[in-house]
Design a protein around this nucleic acid. Structure first.
Lengths: 356, 356
DNA sequence: TTGTAGGCGTTATCAG
DNA sequence: CTGATAACGCCTACAA
C-alpha cells in the first residue's frame, strides 16, 4: 500500500516539471534564496542551504536551462559550423571528428553545450544569422576557405563584435581568432626526410588553394628543396593540384606517372589524396615505397590502412579544437585576449618512403 | 556627410539588439501584432503585415530564439548523444558522420537545431539529465549497446515520457523508437555471394556482442551457410570476435592464419576490422582476393582505400539518421506514432573476393 | 482585424 | 543573511 503510493508519486513527478517556486515553499524560504543556493552566490547560512538542497532533492528539482539562458541573456551554447556536403567527402571525416571531439571535451568541462550548424554550400547565408537568433554565445567555424565572400562575411562578424574562431585556417592580413597548426614546418620536415633518404626529384601534390594550409605546405616544401640546393620552380612537372579528395589524388596519379622519369617521390598535402595517388599508381604497376616514395599529411586513420602504411605529417586536431574552445569561451567571459595560435606538427614515419 | 551618418547608424545597430517592441513602435502596431506577423498566425490585414515586415527589415529585427523557447516551453533543439572515447576510435567515424549528416539535414529542414552531447564512458549519468534541463525536446541516441544498465536507463526515459530514438540498434523485448538496418539480410547476401563464388569454408569475424547488429550479422551468416548445407556450429575455428576496431581485426589475423587450412574466406562484421585483418594477413604473406576472400560491412570510405578494394555490405546510415530525426520530431509535435523501422542494405562488390 | 494583459522560470538589484 | 520585486523578450488567450 505504502509502496504503491510511493511509486505513484514518483511517476507523477516524472511528468510534472518542478520549479523553483515549489522548492522554495517546501524549504520555507523565498525563491531568491533557492537561486542563491543553486548559483552559489552571496553568503548564506549553512542550515538554509541544506534545507534548500534537501527540498530540491526530494522534489527532484533541476533548474530550467532555457529560463536561465533567458534571464542571463546568454545561451550557454557554443556554435560549431561545419561545411556540409552530402555524399561528398572533400575533407577527411577524420579532421572533423578529431576537432569536434576536442571542442566537445573542453565545452563540457566549461559547462557549455555544443550547437552544431551544418552549412550547405549553395546557401549564401550570412554568418551573422547564427548570432542573431542568440542561440549561441560564440562560434567556431570549421572548413572555411580564404575566398572574397568568406573574408567579407567574417569581417562583418568581427565588426559586429561577435566572438568567433577559426581552426586550421589562417587569414593573412586579418586579426581573426585562430588556432592553426604549423603546416609549413611539418611539410619542411617531411621533405627534409625525403631528401635525407636520398630522394631529390620530389613532386608536390597540393590541395585546394583557398585553404591556408595548402599555401603553408607549399612553402615548407619549397624551403626544404631550396635549402638542398634545388629550385622547384625550375621543374614544372613537380607541381600538381587536387582538392583534398581521394579521387583527385587518384587522378593525379596518371599525370604523375606520365612524368615518372623526372619524379622519384611525392609529398602530398593530405592523406586522402595520397591514398588515391597510391591506388592510381598501383594500377600502373608502381608501388609506393618501392618505385616511388610518398608522404601524406594529417596522420589520419587512412594512413595506417594503406599498403604500405603511409608516412604522414601528424596534426594535433584534437588539441586544436580543445584549445580553440577554451580560448574562445574565455573571451566570452571577458577573461582572455584575442588569439592567433599555432600548434606544432610531427612526422610519423611508416613504410611508404622507407626503401632505397 | 550623409553617408557617414548612415554608416554610423548601421554600426550601432550591429551592436544593439533589436526587440519586438521597437518594431511595434516603428510600425505603429502592438507587440502582439508583430508576433502574429512573424508566426503567421491569425488573420491580419495585408497592409499591416507589410508595415511590420518593413519596420523589421529597416531595424534588422530577428526574434530572440531563447525567448521564444522560453515562452513556448520548447527548446527547438534535437539532442544527439554520441559515445565519446578520446583517442580511441571504436566505431568508424564514417558511421557517425553519415548519421549525423542525415540528422542534420532533416533537423534544419524542420526548423530545429542540433545539440550535440558527447557522453564519456566512465560517467554514470542518467539519460534523464539530458531532458531535465529542458535544453532538448527529443533526443537521438547513437552508439548505445544492449547492456543491463543501458536498458534500465532507456526504460526509465521511456517511462518518464521523454521522446527518444535509437539508430542502428535494436532492443529485443522493448518498444523503443528505433531506426535500424536489415543487417541480417545484408550479411545473408554477403555470405551467399561468397558461396556462389565457390567458397565453402567461410569464417565469421564478429564485433562486440552488445550491439544488436553483431547478432543480426551472425544470424545472416548462419542462415546462408545452413541453406548451403553447412552447419557452422560444427566448425569452432570459423568464429572470431573483435570489438569493431581495426586493431581487433589485425589481431584476429594471427588466429585466423593459424587455421588457414580450414578457412578460405572471412566475412567481417565491419570494414574497420576487415582492413585490420587484411593488413595482418598480409604480414603472413596472404593477400585478400588471392589467398583468401574477405567481405566487410558498412561500405565505408575505408573499403575503397584498401588494396585490394574491399567488398562490403552497404548500410544507408545517412537515410537512417534523416528518417530517425523526421519521425522523432513528428512525435514531438504530436503528429505521428511510435516507430520501429528497418532499412535495406546492399552488397557492394569489389576485388577483395573476386579471384577464384 | 488588432490591442491588452498575464505568464513563462530565472537572474539580479535593492532594501531590510 | 534573506525577501520582495523588477526585468528579460516573446506567446497567447481574451477582449474589443
Amino acid at each position: 500500500m505504502y509502496a504503491c503510493t510511493f511509486c505513484f508519486d514518483l511517476e507523477k513527478e516524472g511528468a510534472h516539471i518542478v520549479t523553483r517556486k515549489e522548492v522554495a515553499e517546501l524549504a520555507r524560504v523565498s525563491e531568491a534564496t533557492v537561486s542563491r543556493v543553486f548559483n552559489g552566490v552571496g553568503p548564506m547560512k549553512e542550515e538554509t542551504k541544506q534545507r534548500v538542497l534537501e527540498a530540491a532533492k526530494t522534489l527532484n528539482y533541476h533548474p530550467n536551462a532555457i529560463a536561465q539562458s533567458f534571464a542571463r541573456r546568454r545561451s550557454g551554447n557554443l556554435g560549431v559550423v561545419l561545411p556540409y556536403v552530402p555524399k561528398v567527402h572533400l575533407f577527411s571525416t577524420y579532421f572533423f571528428s578529431e576537432i569536434l571531439s576536442g571542442i566537445g571535451s573542453k565545452v563540457r568541462e566549461k559547462g557549455y553545450d555544443l550547437l552544431l550548424m551544418l552549412r550547405t554550400m549553395e546557401e549564401e547565408s550570412d554568418y551573422s544569422d547564427i548570432f542573431r537568433s542568440q542561440k549561441v554565445d560564440a562560434c567556431i567555424i570549421l572548413g572555411a576557405g580564404d575566398t572574397p565572400q568568406e573574408r567579407d562575411q567574417l569581417k562583418r562578424l568581427q565588426e559586429a563584435g561577435h566572438p568567433f574562431c577559426l581552426v586550421n585556417q589562417h587569414f593573412p592580413g586579418e586579426r581573426f581568432n585562430e588556432v592553426d597548426a604549423d603546416h609549413e614546418a611539418g611539410s619542411y620536415m617531411a621533405v627534409r626526410h625525403l631528401l635525407q633518404k636520398g630522394y631529390r626529384r620530389i613532386a608536390f601534390l597540393n590541395g585546394s588553394p583557398q585553404f591556408s594550409s595548402s599555401d603553408d605546405r607549399r612553402k615548407g616544401y619549397e624551403r626544404a628543396m631550396r635549402e638542398a640546393g634545388i629550385e622547384p620552380a625550375g621543374y614544372p612537372h613537380w607541381y600538381y593540384e587536387g582538392n583534398y579528395s581521394r579521387t583527385s589524388g587518384y587522378r593525379a596519379a596518371a599525370r604523375i606517372y606520365e612524368h615518372r622519369e623526372e619524379i622519384d617521390a611525392v609529398f602530398s598535402a593530405n592523406d586522402r589524396m595520397a591514398t588515391g595517388l597510391m591506388q592510381g599508381l598501383r594500377e600502373f604497376g608502381w608501388e609506393a615505397g618501392r618505385d616511388i616514395a610518398i608522404i601524406g599529411c594529417d596522420n589520419s586513420d587512412a594512413a595506417r590502412v594503406t599498403d604500405p602504411p603511409l608516412t604522414s605529417v601528424g596534426v594535433p586536431f584534437y588539441e586544436m579544437g580543445s584549445l580553440a574552445a577554451d580560448r574562445l569561451l574565455s573571451l566570452v567571459l571577458q577573461e582572455g585576449e584575442p588569439f592567433q595560435l599555432k600548434l606544432g606538427t610531427q612526422l610519423v614515419v611508416r613504410q611508404s618512403c622507407s626503401k632505397r
